[in-house]
Amino acid sequence: MPGESREPALRFENVSVFFDDQPALADLTFEARGGQSHVILGAAGSGKTVLLKTAMGLIKPHSGRVLVFGEDISRMNERQLFDIRSRIGMLFQESALFDSLTIEENVAYPLLNQKAIHCPSCDVLPRVTRALEFVELGGTLEKFPAELSGGMRRRAAIARAVVTEPPLQMYDSPTAGLDPITAHTIMALLIKERDVSRATTLMVTHRYQDGNLMANFRYNSEKGSLEPARNGDRATARTTFMVMKEGRLIFEGDQDELEASHDPYIAKFFKQRT
C-alpha cells in the first residue's frame, strides 16, 4: 500500500496516566505504523480521549514513554512539543473552534502559528480555501462558528486539522451528537482525507458503524464518492481496531478478529452495528 511505512508514527510503551489516583490509562502499549488506520472503541470514560491527548503531549504520562515519529515526547517541554504537534492534526470532540475568530481565521490559525510549518503569507488564503472546499464549506470563510450548524462546525474543524497536511491525524469522536446523515458525511470526509493524504489515522469513537466504514470503504477520487473496498483491499486491511475499557487496552486486532470475540464488552459494540 503506498504511503504505508514500517516505521511507527506513534508508539505507546507502558503508558499510565492518573487523575486523582484513578488510572485513566493503565500500562498502555501499542503502535500505529505509518499509513495505518486505528479505530479506538470504548465506552464513555474508558480513556479514549486521554489516549489522544497523551499522544499529542497535552497530557503528560505518569509512567511509560510516548514516541511520536520516533521522538520521545514524554519529557519534552511545551515549546519543544510545538514542533511535534505541527505534524499532528487533531479534531477535538466539541470541534473546539475559536469563537472569536471567523472560520477563515480558525482554519488559517495553524498555518500562521505553527513555526515549523513555514507557510508564506501569500499561500495562507489559497490553502485555507482549498481545505474548506475539501470539506464542502467553501462559502463560509467570513462566518463565525456560532453561525454554523453542529455538522458544519465539525467539518470546519476537520479543515483546520488537515490544512497543514499532517502525516498523523487524530479524530476524537467525530460523529458524536450528529444525526445519521451528517455523521455519514463526516465519515466520508475522514475516509477521503485518509485516502488522499495517506496519513496515519487514529479515530476514537463509540459507534461501531464508523469503524466499519473506515475499514471497508474507500474514497473513489474519479467518482468523488465512497465505495466498498474490494476484497483484495480488505485482505491488506490497514485498519486496526482497538477496544478500551477502564483505561486498559483489552483488544487489538482486525475487524474479523473483533467480530469473533466472545467478550461481552467487545461484542456490545459490533452487535449494535445495524
Binding site: 510545538f82 504537534r85 477535538f92 473546539a96 495553524p110 502559528n113 505553527q114 513555526k115 515549523a116
Partner: peptide, 18 residues
C-alpha cells in the same frame, strides 16, 4: 473558563500557541 471546557485551550496548545 468557557474556552477551557470547550477544549479551545487544548486546541490552542495543539495548534502551536502557548
Amino acid at each position: 473558563g468557557s474556552m477551557k471546557v470547550t477544549e479551545q485551550i487544548d486546541a490552542m496548545r495543539a495548534l502551536g500557541t502557548d
